[in-house]
Design a protein around this nucleic acid. Structure first.
Length: 806
RNA sequence: GCGGGCGUGGCGGAAUGGCAGACGCGCCAGACUUAGGAUCUGGUGCCCCUGUGGCGUAUGGGUUCAAGUCCCUUCGCCCGCACCA
């Protein structure tokens, strides 16, 4: 017999990658009569560090699904692209004086090469790149649609301002209140910015979650992020003035307990009554201090509450006419509700702490707690007291009654509030999509006509943000000075660019028809491929990217441009891969694993196999190169089975039940993303083959099919060498037969009073009734019980029996 | 702080309320071998008085014939927090 060469992944993998690429076997067909299946992974940001071992985790997981679906007869769309605008590339460009486009191209080429070495079944003919003008033309086009529909507007918003660099900073560049680069103090500075009215879609974003198959953690986090709360807006008259202060409250039932009010330091009331506020200087100083803190720091419950009472203005509680003080404190945010609250210290934890610190009186209006010790916030059991016409009512009923009363008296209205805030869409940066509008002194803000899209990002000398806080584009006078599309007079281009989120908010639509130059994608392609059937990505994208892209899709749906309201039918998440020391992988920690090194040592198949085997898919797992070597050993064992083929047709008698069980388990586990147990089942099967001295041809054939989605190269090669056919990409997925899984006897555990005392063999068909009468009679059972009287038998078919004895 | 999640051998992990530790790593022993950091076979939660023994799933309590799994408590770790992606 000629000696078969040892398993050589390098050779095999190159061979099959080339063959797949040349045959285009993984390219999605369009048009097609087949049912479609759209698998999507979050497209990577092509960082200069190259591929991270985290990318292949998600990619392999959905590659398994994509490959399995092809074997099941679907026309699969599994695309790849690059989300290439963004800060790191821009900063690299600034530092090294290289154009970001050049850096981006280099990084993408490197990423593509690394991805191709891993044998993912991507359709590379549909690759997208958010920085390609042919792509961002449509990002700009969607922005214009948002603008046209009143969903884009300009507003004064605070940005992080570095007092040293004299430029705006991303939150990430602010570390502990100072600039990451120069260490100078960072303050909040107000600037006019483009905003997207995502809040208008808050309810739709909430409702849509009821109709999609997202893992619960994602749904819950999205719901909490949107943060719907029902309550009321109530007007408090300012004492002796013709002016009202409006607050939002979720607890209007506690209105009788409102003993003071709090406005946020930025509240317009302060400037308006500047001259009547005796301690204006102190309040202004407090406001300046607050400007140094983030909302996050300001609302921390654990921190010591700070605040200043406004001396000179008081409010009147509308329900009882009592005059109450107004305070300024940074725990009230201008961005939520009305920027002012009524404080009910007896029944709100933050108000309680504040009132306790400053000695403000409390009035208990919901009985049931001890307000001398802590705020009583129970809204289920509480009953109203000290509240005139609300006394004796339960909280829910009181809420309803007081709102009706307020509405009737014209003092307030029912109101639903969302924590969700509008999306700050401007960046004062170079490396992003130019916002396609022109500012004309006569016509105001004028959109660039569609025919002039894309507004190309011009080359500039210097990518650094300017001293004025403007984008580097502002220095490009040739580009900035233009003519107004409406009146033809001199005008200036918008110099802010879009955030990186823009390009990633619709890329899954472009994949459907990536080369279209008449539309972001053709109607036919969208109708056929959308929605995405299965989208996998990181948990860290749950609240921003996932919400932003759903928002854009819902909007395009409202315009009638996409059929379904929701873009993603199913969403799952993968866990992070940590370094071998169980810490997050990072250059500074020196624990980074480079996928290339692993592929060089063990091969792409072993690498893929290990990434799927290392642990539960949705959990964070530390890397272990030894673990990966174990996966390589498994593939070596599988390879050697080619020379261990036993005679016989079909499955051998002894292994028939196990073969069918394994087919069932592997298929079901892949679908449930329980890749680790699917692989464990195949390992067990191979162990059985070795124990039997080999396997039949048919048994090996089935194993290859089951393993092929995870380790496609070795499986293709074995498929060919064994003469099973030419290429297994569209070979039917193996079937199983429940009846064939049946065994003559099964072992069950025997418990005595709940403790395991032994094991016995029983028929798999033994019923509960039979067990109750027959089992106590058996000699082996009696021996386990040891002569005691059996009072009760609890039998769980196929599992165990529990004997209760006296 | 708020929101989401996690906690099981030396390590990664497995387990529809039903025999805890599948599978892999590591380690130990044996076989084969000129050789072994290759391969194959076996063993491997902890403890002891070595048994049909005891104890074991972060902590303390509860529900149940039965709890890693369900409920409550405490502790610890991870992710997100709106200009990183």
């Amino acid at each position: 017999m000629p000696q078969r060469p040892a398993y050589n992944p390098e050779q095999i993998e190159t061979k099959w990658q080339k063959r797949w690429m040349e045959s285009g076997v993984f390219n999605a067909e369009f048009p097609s009569d087949k049912p479609k299946y759209y698998c999507l992974i979050e497209f990577p940001y092509p960082s200069g560090n190259g591929l991270h071992v985290g990318h292949p985790r998600s990619n392999t997981a959905l590659d398994i699904i994509a490959r399995k679906r092809r074997m099941e007869g679907y026309n699969v769309l599994y695309p790849i692209g690059y989300d290439a605008f963004g800060l790191p590339t821009e900063n690299f460009a600034i530092k090294n004086k290289i154009h970001p486009a050049v850096v981006t191209k280099k990084n993408i080429d490197h990423f593509r090469e690394q991805l191709q070495r891993l044998g993912f079944s991507f359709d590379y003919t549909r690759e997208v790149n958010t920085t390609d003008p042919a792509y961002y033309k449509w990002t700009q086009w969607i922005f214009l649609k948002l603008l046209e529909n009143g969903l884009a507007y300009k507003a004064e918003m605070p940005i992080n301002w570095c007092t040293g660099c004299k430029c705006g900073l991303a939150n990430e560049e602010v570390v502990g209140g100072v600039c990451e680069r120069c260490g100078s103090q960072v303050v909040r500075r107000v600037k006019s910015q483009w905003m997207l009215r995502i809040t208008k879609y808050a309810q739709k974003l909430l409702d849509g979650l009821d109709h999609v198959d997202f893992i619960d953690a994602v749904k819950t986090q999205q719901r909490n992020w949107i943060g719907r709360s029902e309550g009321a807006e109530v007007d408090f008259q300012l004492a002796g003035k013709d002016e009202k202060l409006r607050v939002f409250t979720t607890r209007p039932d506690t209105l009788f307990g409102a003993t003071y009010m709090v406005v946020s330091p930025e509240h317009p009331l302060i400037e308006k009554f500047k001259n009547e506020i005796a301690n204006y200087a102190a309040i202004a100083a407090y406001r300046d201090e607050a400007a140094k803190k983030s909302d996050f720091e300001r609302t921390e419950l654990a921190k010591d509450k700070t605040g200043v009472e406004i001396d000179g203005i008081r409010a009147v509680n509308p329900v009882n006419g009592k005059e109450i003080p107004i305070w300024v404190s940074d725990y009230v945010l201008m961005s939520y509700g009305t920027g002012a609250i009524m404080a009910v210290p007896a029944h709100d934890t933050r108000d309680w702490e504040f009132a306790t610190k400053f000695g403000i009186p409390m009035v208990e209006v919901v009985a049931g707690g001890d307000i001398t010790r802590e705020a009583y916030t129970d809204i289920v059991d509480g009953v109203l007291c000290n509240s005139d016409f609300l006394n004796g009512l339960r909280v829910a009923d009181a809420k309803k009654k007081i709102i009706d009363w307020l509405v009737e008296k014209g003092l307030g209205e029912r109101k639903i509030n969302y924590k969700l805030r509008d999306w700050v869409f401007s960046r004062q940066r170079y490396w992003g999509e130019p916002i396609p509008v022109v500012h004309c002194p006569h016509c105001g803000t004028v959109p660039v006509p569609e025919s002039e899209l894309p507004v190309l990002l011009p080359d500039v000398e210097n990518y650094e943000p300017t001293d004025s806080g403007e984008s580097p584009l502002a220095a490009m006078t040739d580009w900035v000075n233009t003519t107004c599309p409406r009146c033809g007079g001199p005008a200036k281009r918008e110099t802010d660019t879009m955030p990186q989120w823009a390009g990633s908010s619709w890329y899954f639509l472009r994949y459907c028809d990536p080369h279209d130059d008449k539309a972001f994608a053709s109607q036919e392609a969208l109708d056929y491929f959308m929605p995405v059937d299965w989208y996998n990505g990181g948990m860290e994208h749950t609240t921003l990217h996932l919400l932003y892209s759903r928002f854009w899709h819902l909007f395009l749906h409202d315009l009638g441009l996409v059929k379904a309201p929701e873009p993603y039918q199913k969403r799952t998440s993968h866990g992070m891969i940590l370094g071998e020391n169980n810490e997050k992988m990072s250059k500074s920690r020196g624990n980074v694993i480079n996928p290339d090194d692993i592929v060089n040592e063990l091969g792409a198949d072993a690498f893929r196999l290990y990434e799927m085997f290392m642990g539960a898919f949705d959990q964070a797992i530390p890397w272990s190169t030894n673990g990966a070597r174990g996966c390589r050993r498994f593939l070596d064992r599988v390879w050697r089975l080619q020379d261990m083929v036993l005679p016989g047709e079909g499955y051998s008698k002894a292994l028939t039940p196990l073969m069918h069980e394994t087919i069932k388990k592997v298929g079901e586990d892949y679908e449930a993303m329980k890749y680790n147990t699917a692989i464990a089942a195949m390992m067990s099967l191979v162990n059985e083959f070795y124990a039997a001295g080999g396997c039949t041809r048919e048994e090996l054939r089935t194993l290859i099919l089951l393993l092929s989605p995870v380790a496609p190269h070795i499986c293709e090669e074995m498929w060919e060498q064994m003469g099973f056919g030419s290429g297994l990409a569209r070979e039917p997925w193996p079937a199983y037969d429940e009846k064939a899984m049946k065994r003559a006897e099964v072992e069950i555990g025997v418990q005595v009073n709940g403790k395991v005392r032994g094991r016995i063999m029983v028929s798999p068909d033994l019923t509960r009734e039979q067990a109750e009468t027959e089992l106590p009679q058996r000699a082996d059972v009696q021996q386990i019980v040891g002569g005691k009287t059996i009072a009760k038998v609890i039998f769980v078919p196929g599992r165990l029996c529990n004997l209760i004895v006296k």
